[in-house]
Design a protein around this nucleic acid. Structure first.
Lengths: 340, 340
DNA sequence: CTGAAAGCGCTTACAG
DNA sequence: CTGAAAGCGCTTACAG
């Protein structure tokens, strides 16, 4: 690997001048620039990112910290990542995923290293130890999701609006007995997962406001527990005609159990996936009606907020809430007349 | 952030000595060590990874390059990543995912930077431009999958053995008309995806060796195209009693279409997922019989091969082939008597 | 066991 | 427009 010094010697200039053309940071005369360019080409020069980072105090790398060990990357998260990476690249940053166990310990060494200019944190808990570490590390960050602390920069889904939308849609179809299947994450560190808590609150409030009776069943994100959850819903309220599911991966189990019970979807009972994706919906049979999470937008706005912060063009922490989008599939329909 | 110099001053030693205790690279007297330790604790010292990298010519970071933009991360890839990250950590390395578009251009800047000690490349094509870049960058690497070039270090699935296993299992159940639904990736740069090519070859050879007639249908990885593929299979050979699917995400469409045609699974027709996962199988109804990809093993062996290479304890490029594991679900059964 | 010093490959005021 | 020089925060022979 050729160094800047070798380029400078070959072009008969100082290394400072080479640096100016490599980074385009100061005007350089056309002739000098040309000499340097050919010298670089001949030597196959590539700037050393580590040395650059040490001298300039920045690496132009931003990282998405995600808890690899206990979660799955579905289409929603994938879209989020793809967009975040591409927006970062547009702004001249490299984007990496840093899988960290969900404990704050491991984070420290990475953050202290000076390797990262900024950090995006996802799957944020209402009370999240990792956020505290982030703050004390003094590395700039943005959250995907929110803690209870209202003063941090975040981008999140508006669960109030989303659940309202779901209930409006279903009551519009004549449904009155609407149950919620919420996600329960088996790991206790996830005890206060934001979407679950906020979604359930919004559901209960929305039901109450409509004079309806809420029924909530917790469910792990797998088809087997989806079966159990469906059974449980029908036991709690046999007149249920619609199920809202916040747990994407349990839906196949829910549908399968309903079918086994002899209920037709959507003729007898409707099922709607909340904060899900069309890709996931398409894996269901019948194709699921979903309120799609704004994954792409979250990804783009998340890195934008972070990089704006890094580059100082920002007034106060950005706090953005986005709605989900209703995509109607085959799994929802008018309430059966028996309960109309 | 406190520097090593500040620690040295406070402990009344040279920075060299601080370095020796931080890295545990040379013996230091107990008293001196103690003084340094307390100085570090009082100042909250954290070593600067960038400076360390510049001075020592290594970063202790290995990266998994993956083509984020055109693929989905399913449970199989997720398990792979999780294990790779955890093995890397055990060996004292940080592990990051670097999403890069599938063009070799973008890779160069990352590789040149000196930021990465080693690279793991997945979704390797039979003829892969990225591998050429990797070679010329002189950054050590290991492949998950193989090119046609037999002299590079790789870890891959043994598709010959896997397809043999699939055919043995199905013929053992009395099946004679067995079709293959292969994955077609809509992007032309993926033209020569290894698993597809090797899997199809092994299938054709296995069928021929058994005196059976092969039928292959290409299919994109989505339920809609799965429907079309199922129709196509039955058109090609109406007597088909078993389908091997290499395309994980199309399976729900295949099952759904078979059901619509009035065929019962597995009473009339069996379906087997090749190089898939139980998690994915569980999302199907009925639960899919799968030949599970050895994702965890691939992840562990992949980083091990890479790090062994980095640390020089290696004789020649490691080349490892692993089998899939048959997990019997509800989607396969004896061939119906009409074709026995 | 400990230290003085060179060096890793850049960036960035400061001068001219 | 160009250069000499200090400095980023470490590691690592080399001496003692």
């Amino acid at each position: 690997m050729a160094t800047m010094r070798e380029v400078a010697e070959r072009a008969n200039v100082s290394i400072a001048t080479v640096s100016f053309v490599v980074n385009d940071t100061k005007p350089v005369s056309p002739e000098t620039r040309a000499r340097i360019m050919t010298a670089m080409a001949e030597l196959g020069y590539q700037r050393n990112a580590v040395a650059r980072a040490l001298a300039s105090h920045r690496t132009r790398i931003v990282a998405l910290l995600y808890p690899a060990l206990d979660h799955r990357i579905g289409p929603t998260v994938m879209k989020f990542i793809t967009e975040a990476a591409s927006v970062a690249r547009e702004r001249g940053y490299d984007f990496v995923l840093w899988p960290v166990a969900n404990d704050a310990e491991q984070m420290s060494s990475l953050l202290a290293g000076g390797l990262l200019d900024g950090v995006l944190l996802m799957e944020v808990q209402l009370d999240d130890a990792r956020v505290d570490r982030l703050i004390e590390s003094r590395v700039p960050f943005a959250l995907i999701g929110r803690t209870s602390d209202a003063n941090l920069p975040f981008v999140d889904i508006d669960f109030d609006a989303t659940l309202e939308q779901a209930l409006d849609y279903l009551t519009g179809l004549g449904h009155g007995h609407i149950a919620l299947v919420n996600e329960r994450i088996p790991d206790s560190t996830h005890y206060s997962d934001g979407p679950q808590v906020r979604g359930e609150l919004a559901y209960r409030e929305g039901m109450r406001a409509r004079g309806l009776v809420p029924h909530v069943v917790s469910c792990e994100g797998n088809p087997l527990d989806g079966r159990r959850a469906a059974t449980e819903v029908l036991r709690l309220e046999p007149r249920t005609t619609a199920i809202l599911s916040m747990t994407e991966l349990a839906v196949p189990g829910i549908l399968s159990e309903l079918r086994r019970t002899g209920l037709r979807v959507p003729a007898d009972i409707s099922v709607l996936g909340v904060s899900s994706s069309s890709e996931m919906g398409a894996l269901s049979d019948p194709v699921l009606t979903t309120l799609n999470a704004p994954a792409t937008e979250l990804g783009g706005l998340g890195v934008t907020a972070l990089i704006d912060q890094l580059e100082g063009n920002l007034a106060g922490p950005p706090q953005i809430l986005l709605d989900c989008t209703l995509v109607i599939g085959e799994s929802t329909g008018p309430a059966p007349t028996r309960s109309a």
